[in-house]
Every structure is written in C-alpha cells, then in structure tokens.
C-alpha cells in the first residue's frame, strides 16, 4: 500500500513536471546551471571511472584468455563491446546516482524543510517547473553525453592498460575493437544512458521535493534517492536488455 502511494505521488510529480515543461522562461536560468552541474562538473569522475573500468577489463580479460588459443584481438573486441553496450552506461550511472542524485535530493530537501519551496509557491512560482523540470531535463540531456565520454575514456583506458602491461599490443586491440563494432550497440548504450538519466534525476527530485523532518529527513531522502537510483538503474538495465537485445 505504501509503495503504491509513493508511486502515485511520483507519477503525479512527473505529470506536473511534464505539464509545466512548457514554461521555459521559468526554468531557463536553472536549466543552464543544471546542465553545467550535471554535465561539466561530472566530467572528471566520469573520465576516471571510464579509464579504470577499461583498464581493469583489459587486464582481467587478458588473464582469463591467457591459456586459450584465441587471437589477442579478441581482447580488444570484448573490452570495447562490453564498454559500449554495458559498462560505460551502467557504471557511470551508478557513480552519477551518488554524485548527481544525492546532490539534487539534498538541495531540494533542504529547500523543502527550510520553507524555500513554500516561499517560491507563495510568490506565485510554479515550484515544480522552477526546481524539478530543469534537473530532470539536464539528466536527460547530459547522461548520453557523459556516456560518450565514459566510452571514449573506457576504451582508451583499456588500450593503454593493454600496451602498458604488455597484455595486448595496440594494433591487435584496435583490430578487435573495429572488427566486432556494431553501431546498434552504441545506440543501445545511448538509450540506456537516457533512461538512467531520467530515472536518477526524477527519483532524486521526488525524494527531495517531498522531504520532511529537518536535517534527519533530508539525510534520509538523500540516502533513499541514491539507493533507489542505483536499484532503478540495475532494474532498467535488465528490462532494456530483455526488450531491446
């Protein structure tokens, strides 16, 4: 029953956000600032995540294929395809659920419990349009961009790890990466990052917007936003793989 009530409130908030998405003048300034916070401010952590994911994947794949009579180019194929189809989208989204989701839930939660949201409403603002719409839109727009960054740095990290550890020469890695490259996999990763961006930001907005109970309540809503964001990413990953592959 409680879960249904929560789902109802979440859906209502999304419906209000959708209806108020036409009020561009209300959220224009906030949208640009959110695009910077979600996108530009996350570049560092996404690059780092991508590089290490690719590097570890190369080393582990090389280790597992060590005794098999398989061409070294296979390592490049496995690493690049794994990154494009799964890891760049999922691992970066899990990191962003912590970074972006927690920030959004804390910001909105603090505004809620300190009556800043009421202040906006009492001035005649549409608080959903002002606070929720730009945050969800920035997730929808920036997560796919961050997916591309994670993919480039992931494959680059894998390539560098192969060269530096001597596990696979650059030429073999690139041959494998090119041989099995399928544009659909990039599109699939793109769709996933789009969905994950929506889920993480909308859940964080929901948890923050309905936060109550002072500092403890904000802490609770932040934790829930992060945990639920991660859970929804994993669930959506499974559903999208089942539906689209």
């Amino acid at each position: 029953m409680y879960a249904l009530q929560e789902l109802g409130k979440y859906t209502t908030l999304l419906y209000q956000a959708l209806r108020s998405s036409t009020e561009f003048s209300t959220y224009r300034k906030n949208l640009f600032s959110e695009l910077v916070k979600v996108g530009y401010d996350s570049l560092g952590i996404i690059m780092l995540t991508g590089v290490f994911t690719g590097a570890v994947l190369t080393i582990q794949t090389a280790y597992q294929l060590e005794l098999a009579f398989i061409p070294l180019s296979t390592i490049g194929a496995i690493v690049s395809e794994s990154i494009l189809i799964e890891l760049a989208a999922v691992i970066s989204s899990l990191v962003l659920a912590g970074k972006v989701g927690a920030r959004i839930a804390t910001e909105l939660g603090t505004m809620k419990v300190s009556e800043q949201v009421d202040a906006l409403e009492s001035m005649g603002f549409n608080s959903v349009s002002f606070l929720v719409v730009p945050r969800v839109l920035s997730g929808l727009l920036m997560f796919p961009v961050l997916y591309i960054v994670a993919s480039i740095f992931g494959i680059g990290g894998g390539l560098m790890a192969g060269i530096l550890t001597g596990a696979v020469p650059a030429s073999d890695f690139m041959i494998g990466a090119r041989m099995y490259f399928q544009p659909w996999n990039v599109l699939f990763g793109f769709v996933k990052s789009f969905v994950f961006g929506f889920l993480i930001t909308s859940v964080a907005c929901y948890k923050g917007y309905f936060a109550s109970g002072g500092a403890e309540g904000v802490g609770k809503s932040t934790t829930q936003a992060t945990v639920l964001g991660c859970m929804f990413v994993l669930l959506a990953d499974f559903l999208l793989a089942t539906l689209l592959l």
Partner: peptide, 30 residues
Amino acid sequence: LRKMRHRFGVLFQGSALFDSINTFENVAFP
C-alpha cells in the same frame, strides 16, 4: 491561483531566504 498568490507577501518563520544567492538577488528575485 498563482496570480492570486501575487497579492500575498509571506514572511516565513525561518525567513526562507534562498541560500544559493546573496541578499540583493533574494530581494530582486520576484
């Protein structure tokens, strides 16, 4: 309703100033 709310000014118990902007921007906000 939002138009009707323009007719009201509210001083909240905790002031409810927007803490991401300074005094000038808070007053200039509306």
